[in-house]
Amino acid sequence: MEELPDTVIATQALTKRYRGGQLAVDGLDLTVPAGSVFGFLGPNGSGKTTTIRMLMGLIEPTAGSARVLGQPMPRSARAVLPHVGALIEGPALYGFLSGRDNLLRYDAADPTADPRTRRTRVAAALDRVGLTAAAGKKAKAYSLGMKQRLGLAAALLQPRRLLVLDEPTNGLDPQGMREIRSLIRELASDGTTVFLSSHLLDEIEQVCTHAAVMAQGRLITQGVVAELAAGVRGRLVVTTPDAGEAARVLKEQGAGDVVVIDDRVTAEPPDRDLADVNAALVKAGVRVRGFGVERASLEDAFVALTGEGFDVAG
């Protein structure tokens, strides 16, 4: 049976203005295809969490509409959410309960979850995130990384069609980040659609197939990650001890935006065979150590699209 590629999340002119008057999300049209690992990228305060709250039916949109798994939200929350696992703005746990009891409680909250399989499913979820050994410990004794993993386990209590993960690596050390990312890749390879918000460009580049870029509540662009970056031309990079001379020659050859940093000269590649450019450098006596075109990163794409840097520190 051939179908059009499913859309797991679709929003139309989705808008949220908080009671304080803050316009947090402004006319968002988002399309998340089924099976994708969808990066939702934006600096802090760009409206990612607000969007996720609307998708999960926690807050009412001021205007516009959202469909998740083909059904309108928040109206169909009871039908949709059992198929969705979510981690929103960090984990929240009952500190006085053990990790296992936390999961038992969240599972009991889902009226579609079979109590006869509850203990087995909880054990499987704990195992999946590597918390089996710590399952009996009180959650308040968990490290941040363990809490984050327990939060993920709560999202994995049932087979899900969609996982919504809001900055799941926030606050973790590099090792913790690597663990969570490889877990996400694993989950995605099972065919689950993953909607991953992050303010970390490299995280999205490492993990995601698709991405949307947000800035100040507005959608800047969305699409396949490789194409987003491909839309922006890579930069020509020359490594040489004779940087000044190299820069002069590159300009002569028609390269634009020439930047010299120490022994690295970068520029927008001219519209001619780069072999000739290299030959010209050598002919001018520039001692070339390295010569090549660097693939454009998502960051280049972001800068090209917004005209401003990606403020990681937020």
Partner: peptide
Amino acid sequence: AGTLRYLLVAPAGRSR
């Protein structure tokens, strides 16, 4: 504690 949002996305249902 923030647990309310996780109960609601479980989904516990607000009336329930």
